[in-house]
Amino acid sequence: MDAVAKGDSPLEMYRALVGIGVVCGLLIVSVFQGTKPIIEANKAAALERAIFQVLPAAKQSKTFAATDDGFKLLEGPATGPLVFGGYAEDGSLVGLAIPAAGMGYADTIRILYGYSFEAHAIVGMVVLESKETPGLGDKIASDPGFQANFEALDVSLSADGSAPVHAVAAVKHGTKSNPWQLDSITGATISSKAVAAMLRESTTTWIPKVEKHKADFMNPGGAK
């Protein structure tokens, strides 16, 4: 074949590789530029959907970054942990959506939960990411009985505001007797306990802080 004979020169090899590299680079850059706004819109929409799911009364959302002395409306790229404020149609604060993560049965589970200042309780939970066993552990995202735990999961703070009075804890299926307990899913004890553990950890860190700086969310950045 003449292609073989021609390929002996190093110049031709460089020409071929560099040529293909340049064209491929151009292709990737143009596809990236073309799809970037759509992908970002998709991601923002997915996040907003999750926020509205855990804060059913919210109609709009704002992103806040945690700082040493409270919370600031996020401008530009994210630095440090984020929480999301949910607002009603008229701009009044509905509650906060707070991300949490922890080790599940298979891999890290990431969730988002909604906190209501009014009820002092967790009012919703969605699973953002999990690799739990299909049909068992992954029921934490879909099982109606388990989701019912998050209609009003009590995390009200102690008198000095340092931590929730009762730590969130998972109990055996069907034995939930207190508003701070999580009714586990039968056959998915470990995943249920993992959710309880990450909520316990997250609420102990965040609820005192957000309650202390509640004003930061009331009128963010002087907007309406």
């Binding site: 390929g7 002996d8 040529g19 491929c24 680079g25 596809v31 990236f32 799809t35 992908i39 998709n42």
Partner: peptide, 28 residues
């Protein structure tokens, strides 16, 4: 156009570019 000695490298380059493009499209 592709010399025999560098054909595998060229193929991978081409395939990888298309895969990256497809990945962005799926995300979109």
């Amino acid at each position: 156009f592709i010399p025999k000695q560098v054909r595998i490298a060229s193929y991978i380059l081409i395939i990888a570019s298309f895969v990256t493009a497809v990945e962005y499209v799926i995300q979109a």
